[in-house]
Structure formats: structure tokens, C-alpha cells
Design a protein around this nucleic acid. Structure first.
Lengths: 227, 227
DNA sequence: AGATTGTTCTTCGTATACACTTCGTCCGGA
DNA sequence: TCCGGACGAAGTGTATACGAAGAACAATCT
């Protein structure tokens, strides 16, 4: 695994710290590093085939993003998203993504709507193919695209970060929300296309409520490492 | 119990990187480092009397927080908040701080309300003394306290970060919003004490609208360094 | 003038060293 | 057996040095 990562990292030309950060994030989200697991600098440095410095810098950012917890003089551990914080996350998302939907409705160009529709089509197709990984990916892309269309960089970056955490919690549970409800997505895109901000907000809210319910069911299963 | 003590003792030691980060943040917010200004690692290390490593780690976090912009292989510059982003920031704040107000109203204990009232009193007093710096400080403390009372860590940390940026933009302009409208604050605290979430949201919204209007007036003056 | 070539400044990453904490283990004594 | 403390290992926090690569800028040449 160390070899794999090193090869991938070496191929690109971004600063190592960013590559390490990206790799660390996905490793945590994918469950390769489990909540509560200790992350010593030496070990990460070896896993990623780099020295301690880039690892340290990546860890600081990962801490700021909420993926790891750093205890002074004791090192970093993978953060433990508790089911309590799931509710908190959705409470915030509800406020932010409804705003994003409204802004997107007010500002979307024809090209924007076309791009969203293309994602919907691909999603429907992937669902028929039972390609769940692809469905999840398209789901993310749709949400991120809407955030981008909203045109508010603060909103976009904050909601994006929250969204990553939601995904994390989902994956730690069992499966993904299997049959991603594209019906809700379609309604959302329809609303955005209509330019009706209120309607877009309502659609986003409905979608979030459904997702929230699913997340809670998922959480019931528990993910083992809870403090 | 023994564990608590040990944790606290260990945590007492503030890593240099955290001190540097705090110093850097306030230096930027206070305008000691102006937007667009170049921040070389050596210079910061010398300014703060530390080696480059803590500086680098602080810079990465400052970038994640949006205070500096890091261009690969070219170093860090102080970010440049444009007047366009002011509106964006307030749009997000409107959603988040109203939520905070609602949650605070629903969850505040008597002690919480007492603490808020104490801040109000001090604020009134400082206003009479014309101690504007203290008024601004108390204003911040009130807002942060409400966020804390909301009990939603995500909400709290996100809104806190936004709030810092708002302050930054304010200070870059001219004065602070001179006679901080404590009337609005009082209504907000009253609403929180009443436990009426809707009312608290309305009060927060009114306050934010006023603040937003003030910010825009302030922005009209321009802050010189805009790209 | 415009293009090319150096020179210099900086960042980026590596490596090393060392003080100091924390943690775990082991050992002796009650 | 259980407790308490000594002791050593592990790991972080910080400093420092060094080489490589890139960017900015000046000097040089056509």
C-alpha cells in the first residue's frame, strides 16, 4: 500500500503536503484508518513514502477540517463522528443547502441546468446498471455542482466540507444509501430550472430530510468505535 | 479525575504553531499584514521568534481558514477579501446565526441567560464610557457565547470562523460599527430567554440585517487594497 | 527592442538532533 | 495479589542544515 500511494503521489506535481492531505482524507473517509486509530507521524510518513514534515502539515489541516484530533504531545487520532454530531451536521446542512438551492435557482444559466440534467441522466443509467459506486459519485457531483452554481464561495466551501463528513459517516455505517433517490434529485433540478427560489428550497429540504432519516437508520447499526 | 488533571496539564502546553497561528490571525485581522502582502517563511519566523517549521504549519491552517493564499512554489500572501464576498458572507451568516439563535433559545439554561445578560450589562457600560474597543470585544463575546449555547459544534466552529472574517473586513474598512446596537442585542437575549425559537430567529435576523447594512456602508468607503 | 541567459531569493522536501512527555512495563514491597 | 514508583521506549515539538527546483528579476546578447 505504501508503494501504491508513493507511486500515485510521485506521478503528480502538487506539493506533497496536499497529496498527503488528499490521501489521508480519502483513507479516513474510506475507512482505511478507523475512528480512534492512532496516527503517528512516522507511520504516516512511511505509509505515504514521505518525510515527517509534509505529514505534519497535512495533519494540521486535517485537524482544522475535523478529520483528526490532535492532542498536544500525544499525537493525532482519527476523529470519531458520533451519532450526535450527525444530527448537528444535518441541521447545518439544512440551512446551507437550502440556501444553495435557492441561489442556484436564481442564478442558474441554461448551460448550468443542462449540466445538472446530464448528471441526472448518468445517475439514472448507473442506477439501472446497479453500479452503486458510480451512483454515489454522481450524487456527490450533483450536489457539488449545485453549490458551485450558487456562486457563493463561502457557502460552497463550507457545505462541501460538511458534505465530505456526511459521506464519511455514511461509509462508516454499512452500505451507502442504496437506491439514491433520483426522484428527489429530479425535483430539485426541476425547481432550479424553474428559477423559483422557494420551490428549490423546499425541494432541497425534502431531499435533506430523506437523507437525514437514512443517515440515522444507518447510524443505528453503529460503527463500532464510539467513545 | 486523575485523567482530567493529566489531560489539562498536557494541554496546558500550547504548541508554538498554535501561538503563531493565533498571532498571525490577529496580525492579519488587525491590519498589521495587509491584503496582498507577501509573507515569507523566514520573515514570519523572525517576526515571531521561532523556527520555520511552526510557521509553515500555521500557514497551512491559515490557508484552510481563508486568511492567506498559498501559491505553490511562490509562497503565501495575505488574502484579499473583496466587497463582493461581504454579501456572500452575510448570506451564509444569516442562515447560520439564525439557527444558532433558535437552538440557543431552545437549549439555554438559566446560567446561560445570566451570562448573556452580564455581557449586555458590560456592553452598556462600556458604551457609556465610549470604550469602543471594549464594546467591540464584548460584542464578539456575546455572539460567540450564543454559538456556544447552541450546542452544535459544527455550527459553532463554522460561524465563528465566518465571524472572524467579518471582523477582518470591518477593520480593514474604517471604524467599527460605532454605536453597536445593544438594543438589538437585548432583544435577541430576551428572545433566547423566552425559549421561543421563532422569535429568537427573527431577532437574530434583524440584527444581522442591520449589521449587513452597516458593513455595506463601510465597504463603500473602500479599503484601499483591492485587487 | 526583444529574447536569452544568469543570478538570487524562496519554497519544498529531506535528514538529523535533542529535549521533554507520555506510556507501558517491570520490579520490589506491602 | 495488588500497589506504587522507577525505568526505558516511543513519539511529539522544535530547531537547524542542506540540496533541489521554481520564480522573479537583472544583465547580456542579438
Amino acid at each position: 500500500m505504501a508503494e501504491d500511494l508513493r507511486d500515485k503521489l510521485g506521478a503528480q506535481h502538487l506539493p506533497l503536503r496536499d497529496q498527503v492531505l488528499a490521501a489521508l482524507r480519502t483513507a479516513i473517509i474510506d475507512g482505511n484508518y478507523l475512528p480512534g486509530e492512532r496516527l503517528t507521524e512516522d507511520r504516516l510518513a512511511e505509509d505515504f513514502g514521505v518525510s515527517r514534515n509534509p505529514v505534519r502539515e497535512a495533519l494540521r489541516v486535517a485537524e482544522a477540517e475535523g478529520f483528526v484530533l490532535i492532542l498536544p504531545r500525544r499525537g493525532a487520532v482519527v476523529a470519531s463522528p458520533s451519532s450526535g454530531t450527525i444530527a448537528d451536521m444535518f441541521a447545518v446542512r439544512e440551512r446551507l443547502e437550502t440556501l444553495a438551492a435557492r441561489l442556484a435557482a436564481e442564478r442558474a444559466t441554461a448551460a448550468d441546468v443542462a449540466a445538472l440534467r446530464a448528471l441526472l441522466d448518468q445517475g439514472r443509467e448507473a442506477t439501472q446498471r446497479q453500479d452503486l459506486a458510480r451512483v454515489a459519485e454522481l450524487n456527490s457531483m450533483l450536489h457539488l455542482r449545485i453549490l458551485q452554481i450558487s456562486g457563493n464561495p463561502w457557502l460552497s466551501s463550507i457545505a462541501k466540507s460538511l458534505y465530505l463528513h456526511v459521506q464519511w459517516v455514511f461509509r462508516l455505517g454499512a452500505a451507502e444509501r442504496a437506491p439514491h433517490s433520483w426522484a428527489e434529485h429530479i425535483q430539485l433540478v426541476d425547481a432550479i430550472e424553474s428559477g423559483d427560489g422557494d420551490r428549490a428550497e423546499r425541494a432541497a429540504l425534502a431531499h435533506l430530510d430523506a437523507a437525514s432519516a437514512a443517515a440515522h437508520e444507518n447510524a443505528e447499526g453503529g460503527y463500532g468505535v464510539t467513545p
